[in-house]
Amino acid sequence: MSNPSDAADVDEAIRRLLLLVPRMVGRVKRIQVPEALQSMALAPRHLSLLSCLLFDGPMTVNDLAARLEVAPTTVSLMVGDLSRKDILERREDPDDRRRRIISITDTMRPAITQWLAPGATAWRKALAPLTPDQRQLFVDTFHTYEEALAQEIGEQPPS
């Protein structure tokens, strides 16, 4: 059985997070979208895909799908949408001509870097002092919160 002081500590942490998280989300929303991207109607799912390509470099649709934890068909649809907007390009894989490598276009790379840099810099500052185990605990905690919140509001938890 839980110690009552442990429950009080958890409640205090919840109170602090209930103040912190909305402020954090508000600040993230205030990150200025570069002018070159403002008319593109980009959604959070696009942000995740662009982040993967920016930080990990060009990759296949299947690799992107694995990183984003979605089906390859979902990534293909996003890639098609972003390719039509000249944000992404597909090129033939030199090792397997049947595969396509997806990358950010040279034209859009500076705007995407400008858009994503504040968040990446802030995460690096927050996570760098932690040990690898502490970083993993932090990420695991966020995943657990996301799954629990999805269940609480009647959504399908992420896979």
Rank of each mutant, 00 (worst) to 15 (best):
I87Q: 02
S5Q: 14
Q32W: 03
E147C: 05
P72R: 06
S5H: 08
M108N: 04
A13N: 07
L37A: 10
L149E: 07
L37T: 04
N62T: 14
R98G: 08
P72E: 02
A71F: 04
A13K: 11
R109H: 10
K85S: 08
V61K: 04
P34R: 00
D11R: 11
A41M: 13
I112T: 09
D133Q: 12
S76P: 02
F55D: 12
Q134N: 03
P158K: 03
P72S: 13
R30K: 14
Q38S: 15
M40D: 09
V61H: 04
P72T: 08
R27F: 12
L18V: 05
A8H: 09
A43D: 11
L19E: 13
L50K: 03
T113I: 00
I104D: 07
A43T: 11
S39L: 06
E35V: 06
V33W: 03
L19S: 08
L116E: 10
L116H: 10
V75M: 14
E69H: 03
L47G: 06
M78W: 02
A13S: 13
T60L: 04
E155H: 06
A71L: 12
P129E: 01
A111D: 08
A128S: 11
R109M: 10
S83I: 08
A41Y: 10
L37Y: 06
E152F: 05
P58C: 07
D63Y: 01
W115C: 04
S51Q: 09
D86L: 15
F55R: 11
V10W: 13
A36F: 05
A71E: 13
A150P: 06
V28S: 04
S83Y: 06
A111T: 02
I101F: 00
G119V: 06
Q32H: 08
R45G: 11
L47E: 10
R124N: 05
T144I: 09
R67W: 09
D11H: 10
S39T: 10
M24K: 03
Q156F: 00
M1Y: 10
A122T: 12
L137M: 09
A150R: 09
V28P: 00
F55N: 12
T60H: 04
T60S: 15
A128N: 08
D56E: 15
G154W: 00
I31P: 00
M40I: 01
E12Q: 14
T105C: 03
P44D: 10
A13Y: 07
M40G: 01
H143F: 07
L116F: 09
S48G: 10
K29H: 12
Q38P: 01
L68P: 00
S103Y: 01
A150Q: 12
M78K: 00
Q38M: 14
A150M: 09
T144H: 05
P132V: 05
A148M: 13
Q134P: 02
I101P: 01
I102E: 00
V21E: 13
G80N: 15
L18S: 12
P110R: 11
A148C: 08
A120E: 06
